[in-house]
Simulated assay, not measured.
Amino acid sequence: MTYKNMIYVVLLVISFSCKSQIAKEQEPPKAKNVILLVGDGTGLSQISSAFYFKKTRPNYARFKHIGLISTSSSREDITDSAAGATAFASGVKTYNGAIGVADDSTEVKNLVEIVSLKHIKTGVISTSSIQHATPASFYAHTINRRLYEDIAADMVVSDIDFFAGGGTKFFNKRKDEKDLIEELKTNRFGIDTTDLGDFAGIKQYSKMAYLLAEDEMKPMSKGRGNFLPKATELGIQFLSKDIDNSNFFIMIEGSQIDWGGHDNDADYLISELIDFDDAIGKALDFAEKDGNTLVIVTADHETGGFTLSSTLKKTEDGKSYSDYNEITGTFSTNGHSATLIPVFAYGPGAESFSGIYENIEIFHKILEATNWNNKN
């Protein structure tokens, strides 16, 4: 080999080495924590209402990465919350009413089960009962979402480290007369059935449960107060409290946005949406300071065919007209709709949530954005 050729080979090797090093250095960081917020029944018009009716700038406006998901279930064009949440939790399409099972009714692993094997702390928060379809899909497996006592029993043996919501009666007023609250205590849970405390009062526990209503929590209009944003902040503090084991996954549901849609009650819906937006703010505040947390905000489906319409008024002579200076929330159905649903993401891996895709991809994108799908 000539001297000139040797120089060429050396330069080529150095070039490839540098490119490999640069590629390695430019590999995007993985998220260590994931906060998934699900506004049940929340479509684009529900989100838009915060921009007109919230007195402060909505936290939705803090996101730069936004996508859309298709939400159909395995057998229906329009999903329910059980099939929708199972898609998020387990990455499979299933039939309406199914909790943590595939279309053939076989159990499928959920995110809580997957990440707990890697010693990732987990939690669920909801303004409904904690046995309701959305939270249940992250820890339970039943062929029917209405099997609330079976779902409560699944919670007792699950890997959940923190939960907050309603549903006391499904633990201690059961047909089988078991007291599952005592079983939770045996499984190292601290239990509070009165009110959310502060972090200093619970940090000594290895697990924590807040059961603050017999069934669902009160609506905002009837005095629920700041439960959802406070529980969000408290749950994050609790799950990240151990220095040597501070990584976590938490799902936070604004349940009653959906119920306002079913009732065709715009005031109910908007008050719940604004409360949910406050919880989003708590998640983003933590993520911005932490730098290692992926925040995802989406919904299982839209409810009510909600629209921000111009207010219909009448002139003095009785003629109807649309007042474009005043907005009224209107509805086209008492049920769910098939509209595409927005996805908002912030933090490591957030860019992968842009685009249009199926709801099951939320599950897969979470695993891709973290190291949680690494079998080592």
Rank of each mutant, 00 (worst) to 15 (best):
T2Q: 15
Y3I: 15
K4D: 13
Y8D: 15
L12E: 13
P28I: 10
P28V: 07
P29A: 08
A31Y: 00
A31W: 00
L36G: 03
G41R: 02
S48P: 13
S48Y: 11
H65W: 09
E76M: 15
I78N: 02
T79I: 03
S81N: 02
F88C: 03
F88H: 04
V92T: 05
K93P: 00
N96E: 04
I99M: 04
D104C: 04
S105P: 12
S105K: 15
E107W: 10
V108E: 04
L111H: 00
V112T: 07
I120C: 01
I120P: 08
V124G: 02
V124Y: 01
S126D: 02
T127S: 08
H132F: 03
A133T: 05
A136I: 06
S137A: 13
S137K: 06
T142R: 07
R146N: 15
D150W: 14
A153F: 10
S158A: 10
K178D: 06
I181A: 08
K185R: 09
L196D: 05
F199D: 07
Y205F: 11
L211S: 03
G223M: 04
N226H: 12
L228G: 04
Q237W: 01
F238L: 07
D242I: 13
D242A: 14
I243V: 15
S246H: 08
N247A: 05
F248I: 00
I252W: 09
G254F: 11
D258M: 04
N264E: 13
L269H: 07
L273W: 08
D275A: 09
D278M: 11
G281R: 13
K282A: 09
A283T: 03
H301I: 04
F306A: 05
F306S: 05
T307G: 11
L308H: 03
T311P: 12
T311H: 10
L312R: 07
G318N: 00
K319M: 10
S320F: 15
S322D: 13
T330D: 14
F331R: 07
L340M: 14
V343R: 00
Y346M: 14
Y357M: 01
E358Q: 06
E361W: 08
K365A: 02
L367V: 02
E368D: 15
W372S: 08
N374S: 11
